[in-house]
Computed example of a mutant assay.
Amino acid sequence: MQQEMTSGDVDDRPAEFVEALAKGLAILECFDATHAEMTLSEVARRVGLSPAAARRSLITLQTLGYVGQKDKRFHLRPKIMTLSSSFYFSTRIEEVLQPNLRALVEQWGDASSIGTLDGDDVIYIAHVSVQRARRAAAVIGARYPACATSLGRVLLAGLPDAALDRYIAHVRPAALTSKSITDPKLLRVEIMDVRDAGYSTTVDQLDYGITALAVPIRDIEGRTIAALNTSGYTGKVTPETLVTERLPALREAASNIAHEIARYPILQTIIGTRPR
């Protein structure tokens, strides 16, 4: 989810913080499916920069090959994919995480994902799917509001109480569908229920047509470092059938993944949840 550059966290920034680099990264993140091409003023407005500052960053990114321009509209170039591929291969996701997801999808069909928390969002770091419907994409690298996904709610339930309190205090859940929980108080109740149950089910919260079940992936000390889910089409599966038919196997897969992650300390360090 794109966020504006603000001064709200300035006091928390180290003295070595490079503002220009932060602006450039924010510009790269502001492009998405509905903003694939933008003018200079559109980029500046989405990132919360002055046109002059946005122009300097865009020219730098263009010179480096990450951004292209046609007429007066800017767009990302394929070189941007090298940034995510560096993460993908350095963390050995294909070797460590993807086989477990393939096994789950071979067993049930549908889709399976692993996500971790970054601020208020869940980021999908591994995904396998046989689904082809038009719906919110759960591809690797996608990020969505944590409160609207089964993965995100499991991750939020795994936060320490103080971190969860801070999240509930500032979150403003968007009404992504008519079933979305938008009241922070009701959201807290839901998250606490997830903490008690040890799993989360969602129906049409992020997008219509998505029913999902998620469980935590925990490190050796019992801390939630990521979450694993299985999802299907609303109408073909229900939360009750997911819990009855898939929960035991999903928990076993989460345990297997946790053991695999423990073999690669750098992977555990990288994907650990990052609350705001």
Rank of each mutant, 00 (worst) to 15 (best):
T202M: 05
T241V: 06
I80W: 03
I114A: 01
P275W: 01
A53G: 08
D193P: 00
A138V: 02
L159Y: 05
V122W: 03
L186A: 14
T202L: 07
A36S: 13
P14V: 01
Y199T: 02
R73T: 10
T60R: 05
V194E: 06
V139I: 08
A146T: 03
L21Q: 03
T202I: 09
L247A: 11
D118G: 02
L206A: 03
L156G: 00
A33E: 13
S129G: 02
V139K: 04
F87R: 10
Y124S: 07
I125C: 08
A111W: 01
T224M: 06
D196A: 15
V122G: 09
A162K: 09
P275E: 01
S85V: 03
Q131G: 08
D71L: 12
D193H: 00
A157D: 05
G65V: 08
T60I: 08
T182I: 10
Y233A: 12
R195K: 14
E94M: 14
D183G: 09
L228Y: 05
V96H: 05
I181F: 04
H259Y: 09
M38D: 07
T177N: 09
G152Y: 00
L228P: 00
A226M: 12
E37M: 04
L155F: 02
E106S: 08
Y88T: 05
R223D: 10
S50Y: 09
L76A: 06
E245A: 08
A162P: 00
P184I: 03
D71I: 12
Y233K: 09
A214P: 02
R153N: 10
R45W: 01
C147F: 12
Q107W: 11
A162G: 07
R92Q: 14
G24N: 10
I140L: 11
R77L: 09
T234E: 00
Y144G: 05
D196Q: 13
S84V: 15
D193I: 08
G115F: 05
K79I: 10
A133R: 10
G232W: 08
P160V: 11
V18S: 13
V67M: 04
P265E: 07
T201D: 03
K185I: 12
P239V: 09
A126N: 07
L21K: 07
S255H: 11
A126M: 03
A214H: 02
R102F: 03
R45E: 15
R153Y: 04
V194L: 07
S231C: 04
Y66A: 02
N229Q: 12
T63Q: 09
R132N: 15
V215M: 02
I220K: 15
A15N: 14
V130F: 10
G235M: 12
D110S: 13
Q2P: 13
D161R: 12
I123Q: 06
T91K: 14
R46L: 11
I80K: 08
S41P: 03
H35E: 03
A258T: 08
E245N: 04
L64G: 10
T149E: 10
I225G: 05
P14Q: 04
T39E: 13
V194S: 04
